[in-house]
């Protein structure tokens, strides 16, 4: 029986890696994947905490997050494709028209 703390630590590490990738990479697709990483980290915490608390609601919440993530991926990738067709680039640093 692995202590729930290890699961949490693993989730924290995954989240941190995702966040760092999100902030350091410039390819929109890779950034997107980093977001997925972070979402998975959160899902893991929900499952683990749910088990530790003897509660199924954690798994139900993960179920919803999966749905939302799927919807987000669909729209996000469509946006990336649209931008690419117009600008022929996937680098977010070249998309800074909205600067102040």
């Amino acid at each position: 029986m692995v202590d729930v703390g290890w699961y949490m630590a693993l989730a924290a590490a995954l989240f941190l890696i995702g966040a760092l990738g999100m902030l350091l990479r410039r390819n929109a697709l890779v950034m997107f994947m980093c977001i997925e990483l972070m979402l998975n980290a959160v899902n893991l915490t929900l499952i683990s905490a749910g088990r530790a608390l003897n509660d199924l609601d954690g798994q139900v919440a993960v179920f919803f997050i999966l749905v939302v993530a799927a919807a987000e991926v669909v729209v996000g990738l469509a946006i990336i494709v649209a931008i690419f067709r117009r600008r022929a680039t996937a680098s977010v640093d070249e998309l800074s028209e909205l600067r102040g």
């Binding site: 088990r51 798994q59 179920f63």
Partner: peptide, 27 residues
């Protein structure tokens, strides 16, 4: 795998089918 270890069978299945299957294909 970690989901399965923690007895979250359905979520693990969805993770593989939807995420690893559909979403990654889309990526």
């Amino acid at each position: 795998v970690l989901y399965v270890v923690q007895l979250a069978h359905l979520v693990a299945a969805v993770q593989v089918i939807v995420y690893a299957g559909a979403v990654m294909t889309l990526f």
